[in-house]
Simulated scan of single mutants.
Amino acid sequence: MQTLRIALVFCVAAGASSALFARDLSKNERDLCTWGAGVAATAQQYKLAGLTLYGARNKMQARHFPQQWMRMSALGITEQTYDSASRMRPEGVKQVYYEGCTRHELARR
Score class of each variant (00 low, 15 high):
residue 3 T to D: 09
residue 4 L to H: 06
residue 4 L to K: 07
residue 5 R to Q: 15
residue 6 I to C: 02
residue 6 I to Y: 09
residue 12 V to A: 01
residue 16 A to P: 08
residue 17 S to Q: 06
residue 17 S to A: 11
residue 18 S to E: 13
residue 19 A to Y: 14
residue 21 F to G: 05
residue 24 D to L: 02
residue 25 L to V: 01
residue 26 S to P: 02
residue 27 K to I: 07
residue 28 N to T: 12
residue 33 C to M: 09
residue 34 T to W: 00
residue 35 W to L: 12
residue 36 G to P: 00
residue 39 V to H: 10
residue 40 A to H: 07
residue 42 T to L: 02
residue 46 Y to L: 06
residue 47 K to P: 10
residue 47 K to I: 12
residue 48 L to W: 00
residue 49 A to P: 09
residue 50 G to C: 11
residue 51 L to F: 11
residue 52 T to G: 06
residue 52 T to F: 01
residue 52 T to N: 10
residue 53 L to T: 08
residue 53 L to P: 03
residue 54 Y to G: 11
residue 54 Y to N: 07
residue 54 Y to K: 15
residue 58 N to D: 14
residue 60 M to H: 00
residue 61 Q to C: 01
residue 61 Q to V: 03
residue 63 R to F: 02
residue 64 H to N: 11
residue 64 H to L: 02
residue 65 F to V: 03
residue 67 Q to T: 00
residue 69 W to Q: 10
residue 70 M to E: 10
residue 71 R to Q: 14
residue 72 M to L: 05
residue 73 S to Q: 11
residue 73 S to F: 07
residue 75 L to S: 02
residue 75 L to W: 08
residue 76 G to E: 02
residue 77 I to N: 07
residue 78 T to N: 08
residue 78 T to R: 06
residue 83 D to T: 04
residue 84 S to F: 08
residue 84 S to Y: 00
residue 85 A to Q: 14
residue 86 S to T: 15
residue 87 R to V: 15
residue 88 M to A: 15
residue 88 M to L: 13
residue 89 R to E: 15
residue 90 P to L: 05
residue 90 P to I: 10
residue 90 P to R: 01
residue 92 G to F: 10
residue 93 V to N: 03
residue 94 K to P: 01
residue 95 Q to Y: 15
residue 96 V to G: 00
residue 97 Y to Q: 06
residue 98 Y to P: 05
residue 98 Y to D: 06
residue 99 E to F: 02
residue 99 E to I: 03
residue 105 E to H: 15
residue 106 L to F: 03
residue 107 A to N: 05
residue 109 R to W: 13
